[in-house]
Amino acid sequence: MSERVYCGVDLGSSRTKLVLIDKEKNILASSVIKSGWDFSLSAEKALADALAKAGLSRSDIKATVSCGYGRGNVMFASEHKTELACHGRGSYHRFPFAINIVDIGGQDNKIIKIDKDGKRRSFKMNRKCAAGTGAFLEEMAMRLDVELSQMNEVAKNAKGMVTIGSYCTVFSATEVLEHIRRGKKVGDLVKGLFTSVIKRIMEMESFEDAVVISGGVVHHNPIIADILSERLGKEVLKAEQPQIAGALGAALYAMDL
């Protein structure tokens, strides 16, 4: 199997995602670990992890492409691309038709429009504020004293929903505190927070084509995809491991080298 494996690394601000694929574009192994502060080290760790899972060694890798915030820190990558390019390619690989991709990441949200031939037509990243991103949900989970891993469950079981009106993280936090003080149910609040994430997304763009959702936040909180689908009034597609779309795209780019 020597020299026929391609590697893609998406070094995000919060998680490092790495994917190994074979020449038929099958995923051999993947790894998702915390990025920490030493990005080069996280890339190395993710690589070791994926190689071990696939029973491969470094010399099996023919080429590596990196993307994401720490794309320049992946020492074993021979090229880097932006996460916009890689997310587009990764998602189109899974859904090969005209798609509007919504990627909710730790620090930013992206909307990427891909046409039926897989060409990127436009993209947008959210602006200056954390509102609507993973970082926002983390901050709010802390305020509500809910484990991050429990948020999806808590929201799913909620009977009602509290509307969060502001689009500023700081204002939202005040709003949440006010609702807690008034004795609102935590589940209703968490559902409101997820809905506010979706509202931030829907303000960014209009969605004409099939919608694909990706990113770590939706992996842990699949309810977000349901809320988006409900709001848009159409089906929202989600791949099995939505958080590795960028790394998969990077691995596909590695095949072109």
Binding site: Y69, K81, T82, E83, L84, A85, D108, K119, R120, S122, F123, M125, K128
Partner: peptide, 20 residues
């Protein structure tokens, strides 16, 4: 001003021009 956002956005835009 966010230098990182600027860089990523511009790189992604040029990539898009290249690909198309």
């Amino acid at each position: 001003v966010s230098d990182e956002q600027m860089r990523t956005n511009v790189e992604a835009f040029i990539e898009q021009l290249e690909e198309n």
